[in-house]
């Protein structure tokens, strides 16, 4: 077992003239759900894009599953879901999955295996009854799940999910979190899930709290609450933000 699924050291991302991420150092343990939390615009998506290797302007060290982020060998081992569902609206759910499956696992010999993966992914996100509906006719939440299903194809070792539960009803959110835990427990998948909803933090094994391109804290939800003497992760986060603001100039990276 590798020690870390993701390891960053002195990771900086510059977009245009703005430095979005400042000298980040953190690790993501394998086979666990790590929550990436912070207010909108704090750099969560940029960090995720850096990890999957689609972000330009990245400097420092960023290792993913034992390779430098963006290494071609990672392309079939990392699943990525962007905030906006990235699927073809003019294809059915199944056709979408079949196409992406053919890219991940090409060739006629793999047809059977692909079919299994597609069916499995549709079942995982509970879209069996909509498999033959055009993605464009589905609701926003359903399209989001199609996008998630694409990321699940081929059972990637690392899943990077950018706000996968945003705009979903409570029942679906619960089901998705159940699925995430199942993936971690049974397939040993590492999950990195971003959210700006703090109550989802409690469902993660470990948290990375971000603010303005820096990591405020990296710990388990329980340890964060204990350390800050608060009852919820939300209160802990606010306490940490206040502390950081107070100690304005003292640069305190990851603790």
């Amino acid at each position: 077992m590798m020690n870390n699924a993701v390891r960053a050291d002195d990771l900086t991302v510059v977009r245009g003239r703005r430095t979005v991420l400042h000298h980040l150092g953190f690790t993501v343990p394998p086979g666990r759900i790590t929550g990436l939390l912070g207010p909108s615009g704090c750099g969560k998506s940029t960090l995720m894009r850096a990890i999957v290797g689609t972000q330009a302007g990245v400097t420092g060290t960023l290792d993913v599953l034992g390779h430098a982020a963006g290494h071609p060998a990672l392309r079939s081992r990392v699943g990525y879901v962007t905030q906006a569902p990235s699927v073809y609206d003019d294809l059915t759910v199944r056709q979408n999955l079949e196409y992406f499956a053919a890219i991940l696992d090409p060739g006629r010999a793999a047809a059977e295996r692909r079919h299994e993966h597609v069916t499995q992914a549709i079942t995982d996100v509970d879209l069996g009854s909509h498999a033959d509906a055009l993605a464009g006719t589905l609701s926003g939440g359903q399209r989001g799940r199609v996008s998630l299903a694409v990321a699940l194809l081929g059972a990637p070792e690392l899943l990077v999910l950018d706000e996968p539960t945003v705009g979903l009803d409570p029942v679906l959110r619960r089901d998705l979190w159940h699925l995430f835990h199942q993936l971690a427990a049974t397939r040993g998948t590492t999950l990195l899930v971003s959210s700006h909803v703090m109550d989802e933090a409690e469902r993660c094994h470990r948290l990375l709290l971000m603010r303005e391109g820096e990591i405020l804290a990296a710990d388990t939800p329980g340890a964060l609450r204990t350390r800050t003497g608060t009852d919820t992760v939300e209160a802990a986060f606010l306490r940490l933000v206040d502390e950081a603001a107070a100690a304005s100039r003292t640069q305190e990276p990851t603790r």
Partner: peptide
């Protein structure tokens, strides 16, 4: 972006 993050 999704396709280019895949082995295509």
């Amino acid at each position: 972006e999704r396709l280019l993050a895949m082995p295509l």
